[in-house]
């Protein structure tokens, strides 16, 4: 019985994390569309519920009741597995995100590596979907997206090394606590900018949304999907975007720390600070979507390999030599 009570406790904790994440994914879709609309002097979704807040729920209801079409020439098992993989990977990564000094589901030693590994696995959902559809547009979209995600992962990895040099630990909570005096966004500002742009590319957001460039590829790897499976791709994508924002907040904006350690700020719980930082980053994501035109494919590759990668590598050398010269290396 003791064993079962432990399992129930864990399940309860997981639900307590997952349900808010799923609800906030729905809300964030609404926020995205709304910000996008305001930039273009439109109203955006404002009919369902107050300010249109329930728009995403209405959309989800529509997707649930639509027919799921599985193309007859597709590879059925992999076709159905693809959205499940995308969604699962986007959700399991939240297990290591710390919302406070103790409010974390799994406080593992290699938290940042776990996040990086899970986000690099995300490419499989897309490749599987594109290949299993057995159709030209999804296949081209999948190949594009895989190449894009693999290239930008490299620079994200190097940027993470920059942060780790200043921290001396792979634990996410240690990374947050190391920023108690100074958020890493100030000394590592160029890295923050590159991380932000790479995160845009990694999550296939505009201006890097080439996998689903509708003018060329209909809808990329999602072309053959319909109903709930399409909705799962969509949810997974937005959960990934939120995750990248959380990663940026933890690596550069001090995670759950309050901006100033004085009276009115300390009243607010740490989880709220993390959520506010995630929302700030997401707001930037939405603004970029509304303002920047789409990249051409070769320019995207050039940006990733010829500019971001060398620059962040040079920055690693600079950071390491600075820390070494001034004896600031976090040795324990």
């Amino acid at each position: 019985m003791e064993y079962f009570s432990i399992i129930f406790q864990e399940v309860y904790k997981i639900l307590f994390l997952l349900v808010p994440v799923l609800v906030s994914v729905a809300m964030i879709v609404w926020l995205d569309r709304r910000v996008w609309a305001f930039v273009q002097k439109r109203q955006g979704p404002n009919v369902v519920g107050p300010f249109g807040l329930l728009q995403s729920l209405a959309d989800a209801l529509k997707y649930i009741f639509k027919e799921m079409i599985i193309p007859s020439t597709s590879n059925k098992v992999i076709f159905i597995l693809a959205p499940i993989v995308t969604m699962t990977l986007a959700l399991i990564a939240w297990a290591v995100i710390p919302f406070g000094a103790t409010q974390v589901l799994a406080d593992i030693n290699v938290g940042i590596l776990y996040l990086f590994a899970v986000s690099s696995l995300g490419v499989y959902g897309i490749i599987m979907g594109g290949w299993a559809s057995n159709s030209k547009y999804p296949f081209l979209g999948a190949i594009r997206s895989a190449a894009q995600m693999v290239s930008y992962e490299v620079s994200i990895g190097v940027i993470i090394i920059n942060v780790l040099l200043c921290v001396g630990s792979l634990n996410l909570n240690d990374i947050v606590i190391a920023q108690k005096d100074l958020w890493f966004v100030i000394p590592l500002f160029p890295m923050f900018v590159i991380f932000f742009i790479s995160a845009l590319a990694e999550t296939n957001r505009p201006p890097f949304d080439l996998p689903e460039a509708e003018a060329e590829l209909v809808a990329g790897y999602q072309t053959e999907y319909s109903g709930m499976m399409y909705a799962m791709f969509w949810l997974g994508e937005y959960a990934n975007i939120l995750l990248m924002c959380a990663m940026g907040a933890i690596l550069f904006l001090g995670g759950w720390l309050s901006p100033l350690d004085i009276f009115p700020f300390t009243l607010i719980p740490s989880a709220v600070w993390l959520i506010l930082k995630i929302l700030l980053l997401f707001f930037l994501f939405a603004l970029v979507k509304a303002t920047v035109p789409r990249y051409r494919y070769d320019q995207l590759m050039r940006l990733g390999w010829k500019i971001f990668l060398p620059f962040s590598l040079i920055w690693v050398v600079l950071t390491a030599s600075y820390l070494f010269y001034f004896n600031l290396l976090p040795v324990n």
Binding site: L113, Y114, A117, S120, L121, Y124, V150
Partner: peptide, 13 residues
């Protein structure tokens, strides 16, 4: 984790 990142995340792709 390195196994996941290197083999699954890059080589297998």
């Amino acid at each position: 984790m390195i196994m996941l990142i290197v083999y699954v995340g890059a080589v297998a792709v």
